[in-house]
């Protein structure tokens, strides 16, 4: 049995789909911070077969809304004095700028590099975004 200590203050990102922890880790540039971080992968879960967890000791300024674009199922737990003081289930934002890159080779963003990559939420239920310029589909989590 592997033991990872609980943190006193900080953030725990829970219910990460197994395999997605590294993506979140990279997206948040955690390798460039000096926080003490535990990344636990392939943990048994009640809800899913397996999940990943990231624990970040002490406060960190995370854009929670954007993390949900990488893994829509995550839960953010804010920890103070070893207790969960806040649980956040991030919602998909209406518009995301410069997070999703358009994959359509015919999209104008492939040649006009000065413009923002803008995606708007077109179907919340199915987690579908569309490119503002060409309507290319992007499904979160796929």
């Amino acid at each position: 049995m592997m033991t990872v200590n609980s943190i006193k203050n900080g953030v725990v990102i829970d219910h990460i789909k197994a395999g997605n922890a590294m993506k979140l880790f990279k997206y948040m540039n955690l390798e460039k911070t000096e926080y003490r971080i535990a990344m636990i992968m392939n943990v048994s879960s009640n809800k899913k077969d397996k999940k990943d967890i990231i624990k970040i000791e002490n406060g960190i300024d995370i854009e929670y809304e954007e993390l949900v674009l990488i893994d829509p199922e995550i839960t953010i737990n804010i920890i103070e004095n070893e207790k969960v003081v806040k649980k956040i289930k991030p919602q998909l934002p209406e518009t995301v700028i410069n997070v999703i890159e358009c994959k359509n080779p015919r999209c104008v963003t492939s040649i006009e590099k000065y413009v923002d990559n803008i995606f708007y939420l077109s179907d919340r239920e199915n987690k579908v975004y569309r490119c503002k310029y060409c309507d290319e589909k992007h499904t979160v989590g796929e």
Binding site: N104, R106, C107, V108, T109, S110, E112, Y133, C134, D135
Partner: peptide, 9 residues
């Protein structure tokens, strides 16, 4: 324009 979204820009 051959690129999609060019007139929008």
């Amino acid at each position: 324009h051959p690129k999609e979204g060019a007139p929008y820009i």
